[in-house]
Nucleic acid binder design. Sequence first.
DNA 1: AATGAATGAGGCTTCATTCAT
DNA 2: CATGAATGAAGCCTCATTCAT
Lengths: 189, 189, 189, 189
Amino acid sequence: MTESVGVRRAQAQRTRCGVLDAAAAVFVDQGVQAPVRDIAERAGVGVGTIYRNFPTRAELVTAVYRHQIDACAALAPRLLAESDSPFTALGRWLDAFVDFLVTKHGLGAALGSGDPGLENLHALMLDTLLPACESLLDACADAGELRPGVTAYPLLRAVGNLCITGPDYDRAVARRMVELLLAGCRAER
Amino acid sequence: MTESVGVRRAQAQRTRCGVLDAAAAVFVDQGVQAPVRDIAERAGVGVGTIYRNFPTRAELVTAVYRHQIDACAALAPRLLAESDSPFTALGRWLDAFVDFLVTKHGLGAALGSGDPGLENLHALMLDTLLPACESLLDACADAGELRPGVTAYPLLRAVGNLCITGPDYDRAVARRMVELLLAGCRAER
Amino acid sequence: MTESVGVRRAQAQRTRCGVLDAAAAVFVDQGVQAPVRDIAERAGVGVGTIYRNFPTRAELVTAVYRHQIDACAALAPRLLAESDSPFTALGRWLDAFVDFLVTKHGLGAALGSGDPGLENLHALMLDTLLPACESLLDACADAGELRPGVTAYPLLRAVGNLCITGPDYDRAVARRMVELLLAGCRAER
Amino acid sequence: MTESVGVRRAQAQRTRCGVLDAAAAVFVDQGVQAPVRDIAERAGVGVGTIYRNFPTRAELVTAVYRHQIDACAALAPRLLAESDSPFTALGRWLDAFVDFLVTKHGLGAALGSGDPGLENLHALMLDTLLPACESLLDACADAGELRPGVTAYPLLRAVGNLCITGPDYDRAVARRMVELLLAGCRAER
DNA sequence: AATGAATGAGGCTTCATTCAT
DNA sequence: CATGAATGAAGCCTCATTCAT
């Protein structure tokens, strides 16, 4: 009896993961505004299942990106330890962030859209990425490598915006633009 | 007879302008994907009138922004003549561009959306703003003030993206980020 | 003064004819349900002018075909006089009718549609073509060439229906089918 | 679990049938171009249900008539076996076809409309009725009862057209006209 | 009498969301 | 828990018709 409950829970967990995978894939293809039914189909479940697990679209979007966001945040201290200078670490970390954003296209637009239902995601990113970014910026500032007044939140938002790609403005271009922005953040010598 | 036709035409022209004003206002509130009916209501006309004057949404969007785009483009040579250095002129011109984009927020998102059908607008901006920006960049390059490899199109797209504002990321922040990007475009000494 | 009234009337008459010509042409291209605006454009007038002259679509349709209907009716006595036998005359007359119907495609469908607003046209055809057809049938009956029980009205309706053409069922096929129907109407020997 | 799914499917099937019945009824009243909403209302369902089951109007129309078309086609060999002569069988079969067409009046018009998108229906009729008719015609030809050059497709189209009924041109008249057409198809002795 | 701008009803279609099984 | 059929609001667009000039 207790066991069967465990089995059921495990099954539910697997369903949930399947939905997340499907949603991630569909978001790549169609953006975060993709029809719920498309996600359900890709996951091989009914739409009701999506709604049970993620009553709002924002919750789904948030859940989809939580893992990657966590991974990205966890990267910061590692890069800081590995790199020659804090500023180099910051550059590498932003590269990773760009990769994350550009791969999941539609996310950048979603973040920038000001959609009130996406505040969860926004909050999530703030909660995890902001501290990570701040730690890097602090290190840069301590090393005298950072132009004064550069703060984490606007920087992340700016990078997020720069990663809204399209035809003629692809990942490579986005990276280049982030590079330029970063160059502008370096303390003048 | 001829006169009354003229009167009618004038009235139609006024209607058309009313639609453009309404559309501009609604675009600010809701973005360029706002329902046609909302625009019609704000303009105090029927939806049919919108469709009569602007058969496709792209034509409406384009018309809404055409004047301001033209004005912005015309600013480039003037600033170039007035300013101490080409790079200063570029900075001022981008400020004007930012003002334009931020005021009409939704335009940035529209440009970044990759929505086919908005290619008219895209083309319009390329046709008018790209040459303006290029003239400034060329002048900067001639003066040795520009980091090699910075070109007009990605720069405009990037600035457009940086101007997608929201709560906690307003016009002032956007300006600041564009400033940093621009700083990154300056040739290192 | 009286003259200028005459001039105005003549002008109005010309306008009316222009509309009729345009409508006829548009009906050939798009059928009798073509948008009023298309007709107005083709005629080079405003839609208001159409409505002034032909308050209902049925009146316009009727007017468009009146001349040709009259001509077709007038053909009957001529063919009867020219032909070897009344049945031959009937065949030729139906050929002319088929040509009329098929050329103005959409008319057949219109007649068969049972559209209550097209009863004028229906009445017109009855008033003019029915007597013509009856005269031919009577002559055939007198000559003993007609299967008993064949009457004008159903025959005209049937021919009208047979002339609803489409891809893979064109004028030539329609003619052939009318021929077969006619063959079925000939008295058995 | 499996059972409840079965119940749901059965319910869905009943809904589907209800839609088909409603559509058939509405088509009789208003023709196959009737507004989707009218069909939905008559069926007591939402418009979405119509679109779920029949994404295009053509699919709906096709489904509505499929059963009867199949039944009609299946009649051909039976009549051929039962009847004295192939030509008699052909006559009886066309009678059945006429009954089918006249009862669902709107079908004839649909077939004759040339509306693209209704090609499914067209194809369906070709696929099922054409071979049936051809088998009868072949038998007639073998028996020397058929006028040379009479083929199935135009004949079916012609009969379809003859069955576009209206006031003063009802089922009985349509039958009579088809009889005459058929008489014209009989080989002359 | 002619014009054509404006209107808005009406039809189409999509999809987020609910709920009975 | 999962399902997916059903719903209907919401957008889109077309065009018949009116009416001020």
